[in-house]
């Protein structure tokens, strides 16, 4: 059997360092399998989050050789094994222990975004009629598994620590799913501009690159939202014209 060496960051909020572990690997193994093997055989207390092990729950986010990824979906045969593989927690969030970070900020941000508010039902039985074409885009956004890798890689959060002023790509996608939901009647544009800090995003598309669900975060969610915000707040002429445009 082949052996791989992992350099895993171990520590907590007070600091830490890398520890090396060698473990045997077999065909098809993913990084999370190796972490489990190390946990079971060498370091019972090695902390990591995981649940589904199938890329559906978004728990096992980490930085593998410096790249934010899901450990359960990263195969070892896609990584060079001639030198140690480094595993670090997501660096944009405070450390809890080892590979586990404090992601509670994300949950607080979500709570501040105005909830879904549907129009009255279309049919007497309380149901709506929606065409599939009108929800394809929203369904793309709703694929999000909340792994927070996009938040981790976003330089506004990671390097500039603007958590108080910017909600990050995850919640711009979340807001876009609500704003583009054909039944929703709520208006979130002013909060996206103010508290959401949408202007901070300068569309470097780092978030789109790391999304394990391949959501086109920047092009399909953030840019259209930015355009709506611009139309609403920075285009008085357009707004005036809209008033006189016949409804189609």
């Amino acid at each position: 059997m082949k052996t791989a060496v992992f350099k895993i960051w171990r520590g907590d909020a007070n600091g830490g360092d890398f520890s090396e572990f060698a473990t045997e690997i077999s065909e098809g193994m993913v990084v999370l399998d190796a972490v489990h093997a190390i946990q079971a055989q060498q370091a019972n207390d090695l902390a990591c989050r995981w649940n589904c092990k199938a890329g559906k729950c978004g728990s096992c986010s980490a930085e593998i050789n410096g790249v934010p990824k899901l450990m359960c979906m990263t195969r070892l045969d896609a990584i060079p094994l001639d030198k140690p593989i480094t595993l670090e927690p997501m660096r944009a969030f405070p450390s809890v222990r080892d590979l586990v970070t404090d992601v509670s900020w994300n949950f607080r941000v979500k709570k501040k975004i105005k909830k879904f508010k549907p129009r009255p039902p279309d049919a007497p039985d309380g149901t709506w009629r929606i065409s599939q074409a009108d929800i394809d885009r929203v369904q793309e956004f709703r694929k999000c598994i909340e792994c927070f890798l996009c938040q981790d890689v976003c330089h506004v959060l990671r390097d500039h620590h603007l958590q108080e002023e910017f909600i990050g790509p995850r919640y711009l996608v979340f807001a876009a799913a609500l704003e583009m939901h054909p039944l929703d009647t709520e208006d979130r544009l002013s909060e996206l501009k103010q508290a959401g800090g949408i202007g901070y995003c300068n569309i470097t598309k780092c978030c789109t690159k790391v999304c394990p669900e391949n959501i086109t975060i920047t092009d399909n969610a953030i840019i259209p939202l930015k355009e709506r915000v611009v139309d609403e707040f920075y285009d008085p002429l357009g707004k005036l014209l809209k008033l006189f445009r016949p409804k189609t």
Binding site: Q39, N44, D45, L46, A47, C48, V96, D98
Partner: peptide, 12 residues
């Protein structure tokens, strides 16, 4: 037996 401490200790 479980080594280490009580903070986020999957062995425990």
């Amino acid at each position: 037996i479980v080594y280490g401490h009580r903070e986020y200790n999957p062995g425990w």
